[in-house]
Design a protein around this nucleic acid. Structure first.
Length: 436
RNA sequence: GGAGGUGUGGCAGAGUGGUCGAAUGCACUGGUCUUGAAAACCAGCAUACUUAACGGUAUCGGGGGUUCGAAUCCCUCCGCCUCCGCCA
């Protein structure tokens, strides 16, 4: 509803592409594991054809209506009342038909929108075909330190021992998934945020402090709605959504813009808390800091020329890897397979750090190229050298999400005496060299 | 939260029911002139959909309504301004 209708008019996958590159798109949707891709696409094209047929008739009728209305004005001025009332009678019929067609248009538009919303972005050709996370490709992996020479403790225990995270009072104040950072824990959080922002600034990103609540239009703009409805906290009194990531407000800053080619690349970053309901999560996935309802994250966003977006994807991924190296955390880079990528992405790299005590990998960053999937919704375009308006490409990546970084730092930097060392690069920001 | 005002093209600013997609100025683009520049003059200059093209349709903050016809009248929502209240 609301602006959604207007925003969705140009649709998700561009309807033009769907018309002109039908076979390629169907193949790609099949790669993405979409069921009945061919049938769905053909349905959409059928509805689209119907819509255009109605539109043509409607336009013709409106043209006639405009003409007659104008002639009535003329006739009345000339005092030719009898001709004028004749013409008026004719408009009555046209008007009726227009009303019918308008209703048809509304229905067909709705059908088209609903169907297009079910189609995800198509994967880039370099993305491996697969069904689930098991089919993701490990691109690179750093050396793992698995043997501590003593029994490594999980971060949730370390955090309590050093009194830097208060889980219980978090439950009292709000609920599970809302931990309270305390003392050096809070300070460590602040140090990480500052450090990440400094690095982004040095890499040419402009820092933003966006709103933490967004309206419905913004939620549609970046694709959280309708796909992730129910995963976001919803302030129903004012119909605002608590942001699940800074990607939403920061990308929407540019919604509706037509930028100059010379403004590329647009590089934006920002720190925000992120809010996620995480309905349906359970078990060891939600233990400790592994999955929270509120967490902190620094996000990178880039809006670039379509020719440059894959270069940019590599660039952003390397930026994040640089952070992990500075922090001295063991990590690996994954290329997500078609089935495991998000709904909106064309190609995604995930970065995972190894959590020593849990003996598992934790996702700390996801860097994606959305190509035109988001910009189409956002109507975010640029004028090319021929002065034609074209859609930009948009990308984003976490750099980084804090909780799992904190978990990995605590676990990987724990010493036999129970203390936890702070990596050198963070010490200027924490003001201390170890915890405990 | 209350009262009043206001919302037109990149900007400024006309237009209060009929030939208005919208006067005029500025800015911008191309051209003439000039050694070059300025000035002057000429032309162009919103977006989207549709058409092979001519053309057509929609859009004057958003949505709805009245009318043969709406930028212009009515309803509603949103933004901005002023005053009052409240508040970090």
């Amino acid at each position: 509803m609301l602006l959604a209708r207007k925003l969705l008019e140009p649709f998700m996958l561009e309807i033009n592409k769907l018309r002109t590159q039908t076979d390629t798109i169907i193949q790609n949707l099949v790669r993405k594991q979409v069921k009945d891709a061919e049938k769905t696409v053909n349905n959409i094209l059928e509805v689209d054809a119907k819509r255009r047929a109605i539109q043509v008739e409607l336009d013709q009728l409106r043209a006639e209506m405009n003409k007659v209305a104008k002639s009535i004005g003329k006739l009345k001025k000339e005092g030719n009342e009898s001709e004028a009332s004749k013409a008026q009678a004719r408009t009555g019929e046209i008007k009726q038909r227009i009303k019918e067609l308008e209703e048809d248009t509304r229905q067909v538009d709705q059908q088209l929108t609903d169907q297009l919303l079910t189609l995800p972005n198509t994967p880039h050709e370099s993305v491996p075909v697969g069904k689930s996370a098991d089919d993701n490709e490990v691109v690179s992996e750093t050396e793992l330190k698995k043997d501590f020479g003593f029994k490594a403790k999980p971060h949730w225990d370390l955090a309590v021992e050093h009194d830097i995270i208060d889980w219980k009072r978090g439950v009292k104040v709000t609920g599970a998934g809302f931990p309270i950072y305390k003392g050096k824990g809070a300070r460590l959080q602040r140090a990480l945020i500052t450090y990440f922002l400094e690095k982004a600034g040095a890499a040419g990103y402009t820092e933003y402090q966006p709103p933490l609540l967004v309206n419905e239009d913004s939620a549609y703009g970046t694709g959280q709605l309708p796909d992730k409805d129910g995963q976001m906290y919803h302030a129903t009194g004012d119909n605002f959504y608590l942001i699940p990531t800074a990607e939403v407000p920061i990308t929407n800053i540019f919604r509706g813009d037509i930028v100059k080619e010379s403004e590329f690349p647009i590089k934006a970053c920002g720190y925000t808390p992120c809010f996620r309901r995480e309905a349906g999560s359970y078990g060891k996935d939600v233990k400790g800091l592994n999955r929270l309802h509120q967490f902190d994250k620094v996000e990178l966003v880039q809006i670039v020329h379509p020719d440059k977006s894959y270069e940019t994807l590599e660039d952003m991924t390397q930026h994040v890897e640089g952070l992990l190296e500075d922090l001295g955390l063991p990590y690996r880079r994954l290329l997500l397979c078609t089935g495991d990528m998000s709904f909106t992405s064309a190609k995604t790299f995930d970065l995972e750090v190894y959590s020593a005590a849990q003996e598992r990998w934790l996702e700390v960053s996801s860097v994606s190229n959305f190509e035109t999937y988001q910009t189409n919704r956002l109507k975010l375009r640029f004028k090319d050298e021929n002065k034609k308006t074209q859609l930009c490409h948009s990308l984003n990546g976490s750099a980084l999400a804090l909780p799992r970084i904190v978990a990995a730092l605590l676990e990987n930097y724990q010493q036999e005496d129970g203390s936890i060392l702070i990596p050198k690069c963070l010490q200027p920001y924490t003001g201390f060299e170890k915890i405990g």
